[in-house]
Amino acid sequence: MSYKLPKYIPVERVEIDTIGVEERVARLNTRSIKKESKVEALKMALTMMDLTTLEGKDSEGKVKQLCYKAAHLHDVFPGLPTVAAICVYPTMVATAKKALGNAKINVAAVSTAFPSGQGPMSVKLDDTKFAVDNGADEIDMVISRGKFLAGEYSFVFDEIAAIKEACGKAHLKVILETGELETLDNVRLASDIAIAAGGDFIKTSTGKVQPAATLPVTLVMLEAIRDHYYKTGIKIGMKPAGGIAKSKLALQYLVMVKETLGIDWLNNELFRFGASSLANDVLMQLVKEQTGVYQSLDYFSKD
């Protein structure tokens, strides 16, 4: 009989009470964001967006269109910012880089056998290096959820650390795929592992699994970031992704960030939305605030 060595756990478990989290979220959601603070927040949300296309059917043409939209959100409305980044598969990185040209918009690539993460380490490393070599500014990796749920935390930790190394100068976002982690305790533990292993951002979801980003999950991740900051002084970023389609929900996320981590996180260096249809809804709200008239999607470009 062989004796199995105890597993290496790089972080302490932090207890989370789900109902308490839900109640806090409900209370945050009662914040009423009106008038100038609403306009300010909507514009802020645009600057924080990772405009995303992650389809098997993605083509160079589709990616080019998205890149144009990223830099020209709604040209009839003067003074709008650009989004933070375009998020694509590694094979589309070169196209996106070229299409964006000098625009100050990053290119993020999903890697590590996205979205399942079920690939050998060598493939994951190659995947990452390929994207970086093609000019990716940011890498969105997925963790091995199967290993995590099996309790092999050191595997998860080591994998993140290896990908971080492969990223070089590119920023690393670690996707926890919280929809597969089952409990908020697990979300917290995965957040702590991802941060300890070197992630620059922690991200909720791939967008391919339901539920994707939720407010309770995001709150738990923000608390992990806060605790890490107070221990080390290092600011980790946060990216909820998937299922954020409406401005009202985006504002709720911003309220949560402000009241959990403070105003230093209210910028795209430390906070991103991973979304595809949110931009147009935010644009419609901005036009409505300006004109006082409710808008139709027919007047906003779909890319």
Partner: peptide, 8 residues
Amino acid sequence: FSGAWDYA
């Protein structure tokens, strides 16, 4: 927690 994006 204050000094930017204060609620109207």
